[in-house]
Write a protein that binds this DNA or RNA. Structure first.
Lengths: 115, 115
DNA sequence: CTGAACTACAACCATACGGTTGTACGTTAC
DNA sequence: GTAACGTACAACCGTATGGTTGTAGTTCAG
């Protein structure tokens, strides 16, 4: 089977983390440069705690890492998680291509294929 | 800029739709073959209405289409939506590569680059 | 040492989500 | 025409989500 062998709930967390504009913006920022949590919070019109929660969601989804440096916490983006998400979508496209191939097969053979 | 020009809430819907294992399974099925809604519902240990809701979420995210045929509704996967999601993630990787390039620049030049 | 800065976390609120059951309506079959 | 099928949708429930404020613990500066 072509089904990916990553934990389903892990994938859930990945896409769920990406399903918020603020979080996607955070990801694109921390992929470019390092930010402290408060440095990120300054960028958005919401409370510090709200941004803190967003970062926590991203961390649980492995999209960012936090590293304590003195009294501040450095946030960095993890491109490998992004790549994994992209690869999952690649698989869907691959499945779809097989469908196209199968249509070709059906046209070539008899139409007696059901399951 | 490399920033994609798709509505943010549209992207929200896309990733949010993908953030559920049942919905991802539906997508992979309807990318391979056509299903009726009740045909899909048979595949899962949940009520028909629950599956119906999942399909509605996928439809709102443009990941599937529904086409009425007689008394049944045919569900098909839209690979273009999958591709768009994949392309969004591609951009994140691209941003990340630019960061790598920038690090190279900093090493080559003087370290007087801040913003 | 004291105060300010950075973070963590709990409590709370409104809303959305995933699931259920029940009802209603168009379509097919007999 | 009637019964069964496929679908749509509303109402409801428990829980998760995204936001807030408030409190408390570390760490840095003076």
């Amino acid at each position: 089977m072509v089904v990916v062998q990553v934990g389903e709930d892990e994938v859930d967390r990945l896409f769920q983390a990406l399903a918020d504009a603020t979080r996607r913006d955070i990801v694109s920022r921390v992929l470019v440069a390092e930010y402290t949590v408060s440095g990120l919070a300054e960028q958005y019109a919401m409370s510090f705690a709200a941004v803190q929660k967003h970062v926590a969601v991203l961390e649980r989804a492995s999209l960012v890492t936090k590293e304590k440096r003195g009294r501040e916490q450095i946030v960095r983006g993890r491109v490998d998680a992004v790549q994994r998400a992209r690869r999952l979508l690649d698989e869907y496209e691959h499945i779809w291509r097989q469908r196209i191939d199968r249509i070709g097969d059906l046209l070539a053979e008899d139409a007696s294929d059901q399951d």
